Simulated assay, not measured.
Amino acid sequence: MSTTLKIDFVSDISCPWCAIGLQSLLRAAESVRDEVTLDLQFHPYELNPQLGPGGHDVAEHLMQKYGMDAAQLAQNQAAIRDRGAELGVTFNMAGRRAYNTFDAHRLLAWAREQGAALQLALKQALFVAYFTDGENLADQDTLVRLAEAVGLDGEVAREIVAGDRYADIVRNEEAFYQQQGITAVPAVIINEQYLISGGQPVEVFANALQQIARGDAG
């Protein structure tokens, strides 16, 4: 008999390790599907909440923020591309810009109310649009198109991104997880008790899911 585990996945759409972590978690869940079922929900975290409409150049930002030189940046990006390729995630790094993701998080909050499957589909579509296709996730037309593509109501999506619905929900959730000590993403919280941080390998997630489902976790 399968055990259902509640998964609160705290992440940002502009975080490559969040895309890697999600795909790794989903593969892990598939590998232990006879024992574990996920009740998966996504929650917001903004890496760059101060960004304006134009965003900023990712390479310049990372080099400035972490003191990287060009060689270190290239090594870091190669590691991300390699990990992504193992999981079927394509990262196109050249010329990528980071954009404000607040509106995307508001859409995800709405999508959660429409059902877990739709929220997951939108989350994955946002990752592909940003990391693979290089799209601007601060652009309202782009967000509406992606929502429609996964089966959400485009008219409602446009009303949401054009207004301020779900803004308080996003801000309150961000504040809640910050108060819980979440300072980096992805943060994968299982049954509101166990935290797995970062884009861990499939085996790490699979082992954790099994142990928690069996009651063996320390």
Results as ranks from 00 to 15, higher is better:
121 A>M: 05
106 R>V: 07
75 Q>Y: 00
67 G>Y: 03
11 S>M: 13
213 A>G: 10
188 V>A: 07
157 A>I: 07
177 Y>R: 11
138 A>V: 00
199 G>T: 14
136 N>E: 08
98 A>S: 14
161 V>K: 06
171 R>P: 00
13 I>P: 01
3 T>C: 02
143 L>E: 08
77 Q>D: 15
4 T>E: 14
135 E>D: 08
210 Q>V: 13
37 T>C: 06
28 A>N: 11
14 S>Q: 07
162 A>I: 03
17 W>T: 13
208 A>S: 15
126 L>T: 05
129 A>Y: 07
40 L>K: 01
148 E>M: 02
105 H>R: 03
25 L>P: 14
204 V>G: 02
152 L>K: 05
82 D>M: 02
89 V>P: 01
130 Y>S: 09
136 N>W: 01
10 V>T: 00
212 I>H: 11
66 Y>V: 06
145 R>Q: 08
197 S>R: 09
71 A>Y: 05
54 G>C: 04
172 N>I: 01
19 A>L: 05
16 P>Q: 12
92 N>I: 07
154 G>P: 06
147 A>K: 04
6 K>L: 11
87 L>E: 11
174 E>A: 09
77 Q>Y: 11
30 E>A: 14
137 L>T: 07
12 D>A: 06
55 G>M: 13
191 N>I: 08
37 T>E: 15
45 Y>E: 12
150 V>C: 04
148 E>N: 03
169 I>C: 04
194 Y>F: 15
142 T>K: 06
137 L>N: 09
131 F>Q: 08
183 T>I: 07
209 L>W: 10
48 N>P: 05
36 V>C: 09
187 A>E: 00
100 N>L: 09
206 A>K: 03
174 E>V: 15
66 Y>T: 06
59 A>E: 15
71 A>W: 04
126 L>M: 12
163 G>K: 06
56 H>T: 12
167 A>H: 10
189 I>L: 15
210 Q>Y: 03
181 G>S: 04
74 A>R: 09
62 L>V: 09
78 A>M: 11
175 A>M: 12
143 L>H: 04
175 A>S: 15
215 G>R: 12
80 I>L: 06
139 D>I: 06
94 A>H: 10
74 A>C: 03
93 M>N: 14
21 G>I: 15
58 V>A: 13
190 I>N: 05
64 Q>E: 15
118 L>A: 03
136 N>A: 03
111 A>P: 10
19 A>T: 12
37 T>F: 00
217 A>Q: 11
45 Y>W: 14
213 A>T: 08
1 M>W: 01
